[in-house]
Each structure stands twice: as C-alpha cells, then as structure tokens.
Design a protein around this nucleic acid. Structure first.
Lengths: 173, 173
DNA sequence: CCGAGGTAATCAGTACACTGACTATCTGAA
DNA sequence: TTCAGATAGTCAGTGTACTGATTACCTCGG
C-alpha cells in the first residue's frame, strides 16, 4: 500500500490552514487574546446579555469549550458573568468597559490580518475562497443537527465566478 | 463599534472547517485513530526509519506535538520507536505490522471521506478549493522560516478556472 | 582531548475542542 | 402539586498545538 499524498486531502489542508492562521494571529493581532476569545468578545459586543450556550452556538463552540474560553475572559476582566435571577441555570454575560476597548483595538487589526492572510490570492479568488469555505463547513455542520435551518448556503456576496453549481452527488461510492 | 461579521473572516472559517472535518473523520474513518495520527502512519508507511523531527516536519507538527502523537501510536503498538545506535539523540521510527494493516484499512476510508467532505462542491470547485487552501497555507508557512524552498506553489493539478493570478499586493492597509 | 555550539527529544505550562457523566434548575403535564 | 423530562453549566478525561526551558548527545575547532 503506497502512502497517500496528503496535500490533496482537504482535511489535512484544513488543519494546516488553521495552524497558519493561528501563527499569523499571534504576530499580527494579539498574543494576549486568541481568535476564539475575540470571537466571543465580538459576539457580546454586538449583543449583551446572552448566555454561554447561545454565545457558543454563534461562534461554533460546544458547551465545554465555551465554558473554558469564557472563564479566561472573566479572569481577565474582559467579560462579566452573573447568574440570571429569572433562571438559575443560566449565566448572563456582558462585556466590561475594558473588554470593549480591547475589542475596538483588535477589530482594526483583524481586518488587516485578513488582508495579509488572503494576500496570496487575487480579488476574485478571495471571495471564491470564502464562499467555498462556508459551503463546505455549513454542509458538514448540517449533518450534526439535521433539522436546523441552514440559512441560505448561497449567501450574500455572490459576484464570483465559481458558479458551476448543481451536481455533487455525495454518493459514498 | 459594531460587531464584525465573522463569516467573512477566513480565520474563523478555517477553524469551523477543521471542526467539521474532525466531526466527519470520527464518523466516517475512525474513532480510534485521529487524522494527525493517520498522517504520521501514512508518512511512515511511505518511508520507514525516519526520526520524529522529520516526520513532524512532513505532516506539519512541531517537536512537542509530534512527540505526543507518536507516544500514543507507540502505546498502541502501531509504531516502533528505537534509539538510533549511530546517533543517540535520534529515535528511529518504524510502522509495525499492525500499524500497516490499519493504515491499509483506513486509506480507503479517507478517500471516501474526502468525497463526502467535498460533496457540496462541483468538480471544478473541488480542485479550486484544494489549490486555494494550499496557496494560503503555504504562503503563511513561508513566513515562519523565510529561507525554505516553497516547492512550487502552483503545483501539480492546475486544470481549474481560478486562474486570475498575478496581483495580491499584501499591503497592510 | 576538550569544550563550544548545534541538534533531537523531553518537560512544563497554556489553550482550544470534543465526549460522556453529573448537578442544579426550570417547565409542563398528570 | 409533584415529578418526569428538558435545559444550562460543570467536571473528568482525551487529544491536538504551541512556546520556552532543559537534557542528552553529537561535532568540530583548537
């Protein structure tokens, strides 16, 4: 059995892509706050008063992981966490003033980072890339909870050229 | 400061893509062996007698992580690890008979998994997707050790249509 | 032959990411 | 009203993935 060429395996490339992103994040955006932590901060900056589960759902983290991430944010006083008096199971989350400042500062840097990250691609390719990433991720995500609305896979910005859709046939052979 | 839309951030999508892949791997390929573990097995199946550092380099893992992964493979008797008598610093790695059998069994499944993973995309899009993943990962990887040969970014299979290359201008603003 | 510098591996510490088990709390139906 | 089921969160365990420090070993110049 000859060894497979992993450079044609999307899973392997996905892992490498994420490693590359983490590396870039640490140098360009922040060494203090990680990308998932920023995602949580960003979600709460948009809407205060959510509970862990909801935030986790929005940024794509399960209950255990989101608990860890939020614990760190609370430790660093970037997020406040108080028991919901209306429902003793839930914790209500809120960004602190400090957290909001940090979010503002890092928001600009993340935009710059995205440019650097996608620099090897042309303008057309960039939007294609994002769309393909979204389609593949969403499709697999849909397997997890097969009743949820997928919120229009062919979403917003569709001025790309990779329009040869209408095929696929998953057919596991 | 309004919240950013993370669905346009490649880093966020990269993380979600990897999560999706891990989920699929566990259901389609194996719950016993992870994708990085298979990558190591696959590398060793292609060429016996490498040391940790080299294997790590090929599959894209740093020395600490590759040590962990290999420890698990050795624990499960899928890989043998012996001190190099010629050079007491190195450990020479070799796939066991059992590891080779497992590699054979899983190789077929990974191919099938790739098809399922990329099912949402058309044939053209699939090769485009792989190429873009490779280009972005390789470019960032190149920042890490700026003297290494990048081994031809425009690699093998280039029959796709995302050919508007020749641009980019990273320009952090 | 000896020590300085380089290299392979390990170790400690941090941070996602997931599963499965468990606790506390809430809600609705009998 | 009471308790069965659902839900939010925690905890334990496993597995990447990284940095920085340390250890063991090799090599080569003097």
């Amino acid at each position: 059995m000859p060894a497979l060429d992993l450079s044609t395996h999307p899973g392997h490339l996905a892992r490498r892509l994420q490693q590359a992103h983490t590396l870039l994040w640490n140098t360009v955006v922040s060494e203090e706050v990680t990308s998932p932590q920023f995602a949580v901060l960003n979600t709460l900056a948009g809407q205060d008063g959510l509970d862990q589960r909801t935030v986790g759902e929005r940024v794509g983290l399960d209950r255990s992981t989101i608990a860890e991430v939020i614990r760190r944010l609370v430790d660093r006083r970037l997020v406040d966490k108080v028991r919901d008096p209306k429902d003793g199971r839930r914790s209500v989350l809120r960004v602190t003033e400090e957290g909001e400042q940090l979010h503002r500062k890092l928001s600009g840097r993340t935009v710059r980072m995205n440019q650097i990250f996608l620099a090897p691609l042309g303008p057309q390719e960039r939007s294609t890339f994002l769309e393909l990433l979204r389609r593949v991720s969403d499709a697999t995500e849909a397997l997890r909870n097969p009743g949820a609305p997928v919120a229009d896979v062919r979403g917003g910005q569709g001025q790309d050229q990779a329009q040869s859709v209408g095929h696929a046939a998953a057919s596991s052979r």
